[in-house]
Simulated scan of single mutants.
Amino acid sequence: MSGDDESESVERDDATPEGDATPEGDDPASPTRRKPVVVVVEPETPGNVGTIARAMKNFGLSDLKLVDPPALREDGEAYGFAGHAREDVLPNAEEVTFDEVVANYHTVGTTAITGEDDRSHERFPFKTPAELRESLKAVDAPTAIVFGREGRGLNNEELSRLDEVCSIPADDDYPVLNLGQAATVLLYELRELTVDETQLPDTEVTRAPEGDVERFHGFFRDFLEATGQRDHQVEKNALLMRRLLGRAHPTEREVHSLLGTFRKANAKLEHAEHLAAKYDEPVYPRER
């Protein structure tokens, strides 16, 4: 962990923090967009530092800064909890002072305990992680997400020096999250600003051609009529199916599967009716 050499400390005033890029384009997750740095103030447990580093690695962040941290040994808890972040995020973490963070970044302080109204200026107003994501989309500036101590968090004096406050909505009976959990939740919500691509496949759905959808509706109506339903029930159920498919936006493959199913069902019903007529047997009874 760096920070002992004064020449490597965060520069003050108008300097751009190392690693920040000039924005190009409007894509929030563009590689050229400056990603937030993560700051942990006086962490007490090395394992929580490792957990935060791992969450950063999961969600596309790499710049970790620590204010008065404990010793982080390579054979210790922090590296054990960091996963693959032990390879870069954790060993490259920089030790800084709280004053340096305030001087060089647009700062977002995190807290579980918020003010209930505007009389608590240190903890009100506050944003949820989702609201913070939308707010930061509109601003491309060196930004620091600041987490406090495990037991006490950030105090009012520290929060009063930060630009914004963020709090994770939780059960009123127990709103305080573990430091590593809080960081993971918040960084997950900010992923649109920090992650270009995920491991998830493309979820864009291409709706089946309308001609195929209408063919299905025709088959479904034939099916309803062949089962002996009364006319008003046929109309009602046909409309319900139309509304259902309208909301579902079925794919071409899905509609083709349904077409094949109802084509076979209608053929069997037609064959049954033909046999009933041939052998003078009652057909499927119609409702009256």
Rank of each mutant, 00 (worst) to 15 (best):
E210Y: 01
L177R: 05
Q199P: 00
E192R: 07
Q199C: 01
D202L: 08
R191F: 01
Y188E: 12
P209Q: 10
T203H: 03
E225P: 09
E214S: 13
A183F: 00
A208C: 11
L193G: 15
A170R: 09
A226W: 01
E204T: 14
E225R: 07
L187Q: 11
A208Q: 03
N178F: 08
G218N: 03
E197Q: 12
G180W: 00
T203M: 14
E225N: 04
Y174M: 06
V213H: 03
T194N: 14
P169S: 10
T203I: 11
L224R: 01
V176Q: 08
T206S: 08
T203K: 04
E214F: 01
Y174F: 13
R221H: 11
V205C: 00
G218F: 00
V185L: 13
G211I: 12
E204S: 11
R221W: 02
T227K: 11
F219E: 15
L224C: 06
R215S: 06
P201E: 13
E197C: 04
T184S: 14
R215Y: 01
E204R: 07
V195N: 10
Y174W: 09
E210W: 03
E214T: 13
L177Q: 09
D222I: 03
G211P: 02
P209N: 10
R207M: 12
T206F: 05
R215I: 05
L187A: 10
D222Q: 15
E204A: 14
V195D: 11
R215K: 04
A170Q: 09
E189T: 04
L193A: 03
A170C: 02
L200F: 09
T227A: 04
E192L: 03
T203D: 09
V205N: 07
E189K: 08
V205E: 12
T198F: 06
D173N: 10
R221E: 15
A208S: 14
A183C: 13
L187Y: 09
G218E: 14
D222N: 12
P201Q: 12
L200I: 04
D222E: 15
E210F: 07
V205T: 15
P201V: 14
V176A: 13
P175N: 10
P175M: 05
E189W: 02
L186E: 00
D173T: 03
T194E: 13
Q181C: 06
T194R: 13
D202R: 03
A226Y: 04
T203Y: 08
A208W: 01
P175E: 07
R191W: 03
D173Q: 12
E214H: 07
R221K: 14
D212V: 09
E210A: 14
V213N: 03
E210S: 13
E192I: 00
L179K: 02
Q199G: 09
V213F: 07
E214L: 07
P169G: 05
G218R: 04
R191Y: 01
L200H: 09
V205Y: 02
L224P: 11
V176T: 14
V176S: 15
G211Y: 00
T203P: 00
L200C: 02
T206A: 10
V195M: 10
P201R: 12
L186C: 04
V185K: 00
F220W: 13
L179W: 01
L190P: 07
A226P: 05
D173R: 10
A208N: 05
T198M: 00
